[in-house]
Design a protein around this nucleic acid. Structure first.
Lengths: 122, 122
DNA sequence: CCGCATCCTTTAGGATACTG
DNA sequence: CAGTATCCTAAAGGATGCGG
């Protein structure tokens, strides 16, 4: 399988941080894992309406490689795989707090549509 | 000219904020304009080593449309165009602070290469 | 000086089918 | 259940040339 396009040399911290979070569902994955502490693959899938299996797997693999997510495989039948945040994943999520608040303000300002109104805190 | 792929309905604040910042040079543009208050097109170009004219123009137009950047054209010969941050642009930059700090830590952790070592504060 | 237009390559993301 | 593998489209980004 082709490797992730690889994280290049960075111009600044924002650059390095954005590289790790950009990806259509990564912010949500971070949020889901932060809220529930531990989540299985299928639970994450249900929590991210519209995500494809391929993208979910791909994002999780990249986030694991970036040291944000811990992946634990339980050798059972049927298989059970649990995902959780590492310490770096948690601190990243904290660092995203102000940005999320700014985004909420932006949505409010221009009355953009929001898909999932159940998640009001971010 | 084709319009920007348009900012869709958002899932959360992070989503809405990332939509506005993702773009290879937008973080840097924000930083440059915040540091210098006002910058001409050619000055920005020099401040972003490697950017193409096309991308710089495109990013600036999108950021203008997103209400982050103010564009002021002076009717002179040769022409002079000055860019600066709007209030929203400044608050966004503030919200990016913690993320930038996290990114700096990440770079330090894994000893990634950094292109421009002159800009140490972000 | 500050662009816009055009063409091209690369990457992200989605659809679908199959497997241990 | 938790994935792979393959194919495909679309969006981002880059190179180059022209113009007020």
């Amino acid at each position: 399988m082709a490797k992730a396009p690889r994280r290049g040399p960075y111009i600044c911290g924002i650059d390095a941080a954005l590289d790790v979070v950009s990806g259509k569902w990564k912010g949500l994955i971070l949020w889901e894992l932060d809220a529930h502490r531990v989540r299985r693959f299928s639970e994450l899938r249900r929590g991210l309406p519209g995500v494809s299996e391929k993208m979910l797997t791909q994002h999780l693999r990249e986030m694991e490689e970036d040291g944000l997510v811990h992946r634990e495989v339980h050798a059972e039948v049927p298989p059970r795989v649990e995902y959780s945040l590492t310490e770096h994943g948690r601190t990243l999520n904290q660092a995203l707090g102000p940005l999320g608040a700014w985004g909420v303000e932006r949505i409010r300002r221009e009355g953009s549509e929001v898909v999932d109104t159940a998640k009001t805190s971010h």
